[in-house]
Design a protein around this nucleic acid. Structure first.
Lengths: 148, 148
DNA sequence: GGAACTTGGTCAAGCTGCTTGACCATATGG
DNA sequence: CCATATGGTCAAGCAGCTTGACCAAGTTCC
């Protein structure tokens, strides 16, 4: 394995990831959610199942809780989420998606499915499935939000 | 192809990319280049072959030329590159890596080779090669610098 | 040749998303 | 219950980027 091969693979991986994020973001925008940035999508992914606290979100995103709190301010102000009292801890607040937030999450899933569907046409479904398995084995605990 | 499958593949791809960047950066730091961030690596990749102008670099990184110029200021100040008069255009300056800059580039290549070598142990060399080919087909013109 | 326009680069000012630091309210454990 | 830990916010500052203005050198066209 030459160093140049490693660099070629690295470049291909980063190009694919960058392209994916860009296309999903474009798809979300095209579906009418024009006031969001890709970073919000990473937050929605954590909030979607059952909501989360600001601190949970901060850990998930790899930022301080102050930064996470600001991001929550923004998506609350834009109507994608709301702060509720936490059912088990009076200090905490549970951040949950609104209907609009869930609709946006579905839009992101549709956009992702479109992109991946395009890959399936290029490579075939089996190859795409194999790609997913191999990537999952490479970085099972990789950061959700990239570090650069 | 379910939407959830597309999301799983997307998450795996982003996790792998984030993990890769983090590990390369750690490897570069461990080799003694402690005053750089991952973004600098993307610039070095463009400068390494024959140098580049500030405008070239800006296009490559997807930022304004003012931002690229600031980044060049920084790597020049830290001794990784220097500005030379452009041999064919008196308006332009050719930014070229210094010896230290080339040494850092080699360190990044070594670090990348280490990470990819780890993948080869997990998946086998053939699988890694297949991964590279498929990723290259997915996003042959993907952005060098991701958009989020 | 020279006027009009384009292109490479920098200077300056401003914004945004993040950080650190301080602080309050509630939980938790001796 | 008192001491400490934890969830959250407010405030100030910083780093990296943007827009806008400008100059020097190249290019086009008469």
């Amino acid at each position: 394995m030459q160093n140049s091969d490693a660099m070629a693979l690295s470049a291909a991986l980063l190009a694919a990831a960058g392209d994916l994020v860009q296309r999903i973001h474009d798809g979300v925008t095209a579906r009418g959610f024009t006031d969001l940035r890709p970073a919000h999508g990473f937050a929605f992914a954590r909030l979607a199942p059952d909501g989360a606290t600001v601190t949970d979100l901060a850990v998930h995103l790899g930022v301080t809780k102050q930064a996470a709190s600001q991001l929550v301010d923004e998506i609350v102000r834009k109507g994608y989420a709301e702060r509720r009292p936490h059912p088990e801890d009076a200090r905490a607040r549970l951040i949950v998606l609104t209907g609009r937030g869930r609709a946006c999450t579905r839009a992101a899933e549709e956009a992702a499915a479109e992109v991946v569907g395009g890959w399936a046409e290029l490579l075939g479904e089996g190859e795409v499935r194999a790609l997913r398995e191999r990537l999952a084995r490479i970085a099972p605990y990789g950061p959700i939000r990239p570090a650069w």
